[in-house]
Simulated assay, not measured.
Amino acid sequence: MNPNYYTLAPKVIPIQGTPLRIIEVLPVGLPDRLDRVSIMVNTDQGQSNILDNNRWTSTLSTELHDSLSASLQQQLNAVDRYTSGISTTNTVYRIAIDFSRFDIVKPIPNHRNGSVEVAVSWMIKPIEPLQTSTTSKQPTHRLLNCRMSFSQEVANSDSVTDMVNASKLAVNQVTTGVSDAVFAVEKGTTPRVNHAVCS
């Protein structure tokens, strides 16, 4: 049987005009048990089922990184310097994201719907442009750490497509939290992000 391939990659609309921000999305941290090509489904009782005929188009950590990078570029009207390698005289927002959980959980029969269980933290470190003796000034941005955990419901836990769609919704929620945090760092304020705590 030929395997089915799925991706978390979002639909991206080309950025219009000159990019306003430069970001640098580092490779995503993910537990080894999750970082595989085959989709893995867990049960409420702690059992894991590897779906060898249903696969991501790359390892899950790469899928998460590429999806987050593309979505953040869209939401922030930005270019990811990590993948483009461009040089800039603007502030660069370096973003490190670490997932301790990204588990697709299928309940035992006749119980609640399945879910994608997410626990993630991220750090935004502003990299200020090099200053000269004539332009020296105090940095205006501060480092920010955030963490969040939530459950994203799977409409039909017997459908791999629904599992993938729920995974995409979960990534979208993380993306929104990270982009809100970038806006807050830029403005020097404390972000208010659903399900997240920042300091």
Rank of each mutant, 00 (worst) to 15 (best):
V120K: 01
A96M: 09
L143Y: 08
K168Y: 07
L51E: 02
S136F: 11
V193L: 05
P191E: 01
V92H: 04
A119I: 05
H195V: 02
V174Q: 01
K168N: 10
D35H: 08
L144I: 10
V105N: 01
T190H: 02
N113E: 04
T43Q: 07
W122K: 00
S159Q: 01
M40P: 01
Q75E: 14
D52C: 07
Q45F: 08
P107V: 06
T140W: 03
E186D: 11
S136C: 12
W56Q: 05
V116I: 15
S48D: 12
S149V: 02
E24W: 11
S121F: 02
I127T: 03
E63A: 00
S87C: 06
L169I: 08
T18E: 15
N77I: 08
L72T: 01
A78Q: 06
N2V: 02
E24H: 15
D35K: 05
N156C: 02
G29H: 02
K168E: 13
P126Y: 01
S121Y: 04
D180G: 06
T176R: 15
A70K: 15
D44N: 13
L8C: 05
M148V: 10
V164Y: 05
V41K: 02
Q173H: 07
S133E: 12
T176H: 12
D98G: 12
Y93R: 06
I86D: 13
P126I: 07
N2H: 14
S61C: 01
V174D: 03
T140N: 12
V164H: 05
I97P: 01
I124N: 01
N4M: 11
H65K: 14
Q45R: 12
N156P: 08
K187M: 00
R33D: 09
R147N: 15
G29F: 04
D32F: 09
P31N: 07
